[in-house]
Amino acid sequence: MTGNATSHAWSSQQGAAALAAPSLAEKRRAFDWRILLGFLLPIAVALLWEAAVRFGLAQGRLVPPPSRIFAALWSLAETGELWTHVWTTLWRVLTGFIIGAVTGIVFGALSGSGETVRRLLDPTLQALRAIPSIAWVPLFILWLGIFEASKVALIAVGVFFPVYLGIAGAILSVDRKLVEVGHVFRLSRFKLAKRILLPAVLPEAVIALRSGLGLGFMFVVAAEFMGASEGLGYLLVDGQQMGKPDQILAAIIAFALLGKLADSLLVLLTKPLVRWQDTVRERL
């Protein structure tokens, strides 16, 4: 009797859990709904501004309606000019991001794992971090010329500092008890880094890389102001000089879309590294 009662209670708990847990199809529908929800605010603002211009409530001269902006985008895409500018900007950001991220990871790991190295490096790097991005422009032009090398170097500088801070801070914030557990089990330095330090650091490292990528897209605008003849930053300058606000806003929208796609791709590529996390977001 006791065994049957226990079995019945266990099956009842399983049934209740199955009813409470959302099915895979329901999760997918909820996920799709959340994606659509993210488009709601920009679409609503665009429709309201389009209606305001069409009904004569606003002129739309300095801030064109969405129809004119997308017409400018379509015109640039039809001629192939847009794709040339997009590819040029993307290549510069990708190259600068790789250089800045790798350098930031190396220096961040060195600074986070040794107090002597941290005291040697960190004050200088923190002082350099306070320098405005535009202040590097004349120096890089003088050193590297006005072509691609100076632009990529400026983007790499923008990526380096958030990655460096994120990696160093993540290493320094590892729970001391985890390291002591590794010492109790007599793990070597390599195994300690692989089994304890690396999993503890990875979530914050991914955030640091995403921050660096975002700053890379910010710095590419300053880089493409340095005498560029191609790139989305060049489209901004050209639109300002030619008095084309629709082209300026089209370039800004292209920047936003390109940056969002790059960030989503980075999240997708790094997701297997933090799949072990049991966070609230993964349960929703």
Rank of each mutant, 00 (worst) to 15 (best):
M1D: 00
S7K: 06
H8M: 10
H8E: 12
A9T: 09
S11T: 09
Q14A: 11
Q14L: 10
L19M: 14
P22R: 11
S23Q: 05
R28E: 09
R28F: 06
R28G: 13
A30E: 10
D32P: 11
D32V: 15
L37C: 13
L40S: 15
L41M: 13
V45S: 12
V45H: 14
A46C: 11
L47K: 02
L47D: 11
L47T: 15
W49H: 06
V53G: 03
F55R: 15
L57F: 14
G60C: 02
S67T: 08
S67D: 06
R68N: 06
F70R: 02
F70K: 03
W74T: 13
W74Y: 07
S75E: 10
T79Q: 10
T79W: 05
V86T: 08
T89V: 04
R92H: 12
V93K: 07
T95E: 07
T95V: 13
G96R: 00
F97K: 00
I98H: 03
V106Q: 09
F107H: 09
A109H: 01
S111V: 05
G112L: 03
S113F: 05
E115L: 06
P123H: 03
A127D: 03
R129L: 15
S133A: 12
I134N: 09
I134L: 13
L142Q: 06
L142M: 12
L142P: 04
W143L: 11
L144F: 15
G145M: 04
F147R: 15
E148W: 08
A149T: 13
A149G: 05
K151A: 02
L154P: 00
A156C: 07
V157M: 12
G158S: 04
G158I: 08
G158P: 03
F160K: 01
P162W: 04
V163E: 00
G166E: 01
G166F: 05
I167C: 02
I167W: 00
I167S: 02
A168C: 15
L172D: 04
V174M: 00
R176F: 12
K177C: 11
L178D: 03
E180C: 14
R186C: 09
L187M: 09
S188C: 05
A193G: 03
R195M: 10
R195I: 04
I196Y: 01
L197E: 01
L198Y: 07
P199R: 00
A200Q: 06
A200V: 00
P203N: 05
E204L: 01
L209F: 01
S211W: 08
G212L: 00
G212Y: 05
L213T: 00
G214T: 04
F217W: 04
M218H: 07
M218G: 08
F219Y: 07
F219R: 00
V221P: 07
E224T: 07
M226W: 06
A228Q: 05
G233Y: 05
G233A: 04
G233M: 06
Y234L: 03
V237D: 13
G239P: 13
Q241A: 13
G243M: 06
K244W: 04
D246P: 06
L249F: 15
A250S: 12
G259T: 05
L261G: 08
A262Q: 07
D263W: 10
V267K: 15
P272R: 02
W276H: 15
Q277P: 04
D278T: 10
R281P: 05
R281Q: 14
E282S: 12
R283K: 14
